[in-house]
């Protein structure tokens, strides 16, 4: 398996929103490397003919293909506003508060 470039590890940490120290990044790189090397067998694995489902969809339950699970359009506001905001690290009692988001909305 190719060696993981250190920028890759740094990028992963940014993507995952994990602030890692340089030592932690290095250790993380080593760990990842070791784990992936141990998983080498996966890269040479060839599934037998007809043993997999569609590659991009997970088969959830054996034989559940024919059953959809959904719900009717009924309203239930099951979470109380006060209880929800009470557990927020920062709130004004109406909204959840975060540092200013620069660059406008989503």
């Amino acid at each position: 398996m190719e060696t993981l470039p250190s920028q890759t590890v740094a990028r992963l940490a940014r993507t995952a929103r994990l602030e890692l120290t340089p030592e932690e990044l290095e250790r993380s790189g080593h760990d990842l490397q070791k784990i992936l090397a141990a998983f080498e067998s996966l890269s040479t694995f060839v599934p037998r003919e007809g043993s997999q489902g569609p590659a991009d969809t997970v088969r959830l339950n054996e034989g559940s293909e024919a059953r959809g699970t959904s719900r009717p359009d009924n309203v239930l506001n099951a979470l109380d506003k006060a209880a929800f905001l009470a557990q927020a690290p920062d709130s004004d009692g109406v909204y959840v508060r975060v540092p200013l988001i620069l660059g406008g909305g989503s």
Partner: peptide, 9 residues
């Protein structure tokens, strides 16, 4: 919603 130093969710 953005106000002053905070964004409100």
């Amino acid at each position: 919603v953005h106000t002053g130093n905070h964004s409100l969710c």
